[in-house]
């Protein structure tokens, strides 16, 4: 069977690689039976479009960041993936993204006509700013910070004392250059790829939250496949999740090197405890929104008892 997989990540972004990895692995595991053509780099639309394209069956499979799901499908549970500091390292994330609550999130997409296949990771978020390295939570105070305008992120950055601003993705470079924003919370590969560092020289490795996303498939298309094909797709995808996460981790290390060579000053964040303390209230507020969020938090706490 021939399938089309579309995503909005640009060439060089970890997710671009993951889509190709997935297509190759599924073909191999199905003995060449499931043949996937990948359309990346926003060729068929951006992240937000993917959900619609797949949901309506125009494209068979897609990838979109988890931030989109609370927003446009009202699946608040996905916010659990971005609670600050809950999952500290890539290695922990690799386990969490295949944990039972995570799989429950994937399954919760059925009523939107989507079959959630598996998670992947786009890159931990760090802090890029113009004025100097961030040494303590105090330093966030009043910084005009570009965020993706969703309630969870707005809440987190307000709790940290920053002044969060929703600048459209395409305007980040100009906004930083013209000082409309002082900083941006971003993943390392986007900082490198979009050359945002040209206008801001300090990266603080805050690692405040991850940026997971998921591969999903049109539900009817999925149901029309043979059990063998279904198994090849879902199992391959879920088995690859840890590899995706580790690939992103490796990519981040490489990109940090590139940024250093470009003269960007990169520093560790020494005040993690206060960051966690300041954002603690968010956990409680969000747990009330969906039982799955509480479940995910419990699961995460088992990691490092």
């Amino acid at each position: 069977v021939d399938l089309r997989l579309a995503h909005g990540s640009p060439r060089g972004h970890p997710n671009y690689t993951h889509a190709d990895m997935l297509a190759g692995a599924i073909k191999e595991n199905s003995n060449g039976d499931v043949n996937i053509t990948v359309y990346g780099d926003r060729q068929l639309g951006d992240d937000r479009d993917m959900i619609q394209l797949v949901s309506s069956g125009t494209v068979d499979m897609g990838y979109a960041s988890s931030v989109n799901f609370p927003l446009i499908l009202n699946k608040v549970a996905f916010d659990a993936l971005q609670l600050p500091g809950l999952v500290p390292t890539y290695d922990d994330l690799a386990k969490m993204l295949v944990s039972p609550p995570a799989i429950k999130m994937l399954d919760s997409l059925e009523d939107a006509n989507l079959k959630g296949l598996c998670f992947s990771e786009g890159g931990q978020r760090h802090f890029l700013n113009r004025n100097g390295p961030i040494k303590s939570v105090e330093d966030f105070k009043g910084l005009k910070t570009r965020i993706v305008p969703i309630p969870l992120h707005k809440e987190i950055w307000q709790k940290l004392g920053a002044n969060p601003i929703g600048v459209p993705y395409g305007e980040v470079y100009t906004a930083m250059q013209t000082k409309v924003i002082d900083g941006v919370e971003f993943n390392i590969s986007s900082i490198a790829a979009d050359k945002v560092y040209e206008n801001a020289n300090y990266v603080t490795l805050t690692g405040h939250y991850f940026w997971p996303g998921l591969f999903f498939m049109n539900k009817e298309k999925y149901d029309s496949l043979t059990p063998e094909e279904q198994k090849a797709i879902v199992d391959t995808c879920r088995e690859l999740t840890p590899e995706f996460v580790m690939q992103t981790k490796g990519e981040e290390a490489k990109q940090i090197k590139i940024l250093e060579d470009a003269g960007v000053e990169i520093s560790e964040f020494p005040d993690r405890e206060n960051l966690l303390a300041a954002t603690e209230p968010v956990f409680e507020a969000w747990s009330a929104k969906d039982p799955l969020i509480g479940e995910y938090i419990e699961e995460a706490k088992k990691l490092n008892p």
Binding site: G45, R48, D49, Q52, S56, G57, T58, E171
Partner: peptide, 18 residues
Amino acid sequence: GLMKIFPQRIFGSVDQFV
């Protein structure tokens, strides 16, 4: 069958902040 995508493209291409 790809006509199915036109409404989404039409809507999405206008639904741009810039």
